[in-house]
Design a protein around this nucleic acid. Structure first.
Lengths: 126, 126
DNA sequence: ATGGCTGTATTATTATCATAATACAAAGAA
DNA sequence: TTCTTTGTATTATGATAATAATACAGCCAT
């Protein structure tokens, strides 16, 4: 997995985002064992404390739970996962549209640009 | 103007974003006088030093210039402004699509959601 | 010339983030 | 039992951000 961390936001928040995406997209399924803190930290090139903070925060959100010494697992509440996925999507759409409007783009233009980008992508991968 | 600053990113960066939007959308036109640092800072509820940093950075990008004691002005290079606008739009679209793909949404679904949101908005404002 | 407005510079203080380096407790395996 | 793996806690250090409080230089109108 590629973590692609940037410098413009707290790392632990970016880690939370990536892990949430993993869960919400099913790459980390309900009940799946989450790799150990130290392993994830090493993989992401981050201090274990930082990864620990991200995981603890995700746990407070209910996306994971801990079996004290055996490890950490993804929640089995599929409904919650689905809800969070929809919520994130909704937020991103709202933010994207608001931002584009602020730049002076109309909804029509935006959809047009998206479809244009889509066609461009088809010529390359997938 | 509403600045709507959040806590998840450096304030000076958010200030840069807002000011750039103002210029790129024409609310601050080429050659227009930019309000004094202290005034902008007060309006945004921010320390003058922080606003100063944002403005200085925008100046380094070429979006503004300073007439030492008379004040600060928006660049008159309309082409540069237009280019930056397109660049920002392009970046946002790419980031938005990548993020939504990561959540498991196809391009078709995304466009569908956008159009749905668009219809919902029509019932309210504008 | 004086006072006010402009951008700019300086110093200090506080908070958050990230890292480093350990240490400990509990469960499970050898 | 002993060792390893797990999450967790603690202390210290450095970097960046943001604030506060000033101060200075240049232009301009009075």
């Amino acid at each position: 997995m590629q973590w692609q961390l940037r410098g413009d936001r707290p790392i632990y928040q970016q880690l939370m985002d990536r892990l949430t995406e993993q869960i919400v997209s099913g790459q980390l399924g309900p009940g799946d064992k989450v790799p150990p803190v130290r392993e994830l930290a090493a993989e992401a090139g981050v201090n274990p404390n930082t990864m620990q903070r991200a995981l603890a925060d995700l746990e407070r959100e209910g996306l994971m739970y801990t079996n004290r010494t055996s490890g950490r697992y993804v929640t089995e509440d599929r409904e919650m996962i689905a809800k969070i996925r929809e919520q994130i999507a909704s937020d991103r759409i709202a933010e994207f549209l608001a931002g584009m409007n602020q730049l002076g783009f109309t909804e029509q233009e935006i959809v047009g640009l998206l479809e244009k980008r889509q066609k461009g992508e088809e010529k390359h991968g997938e």
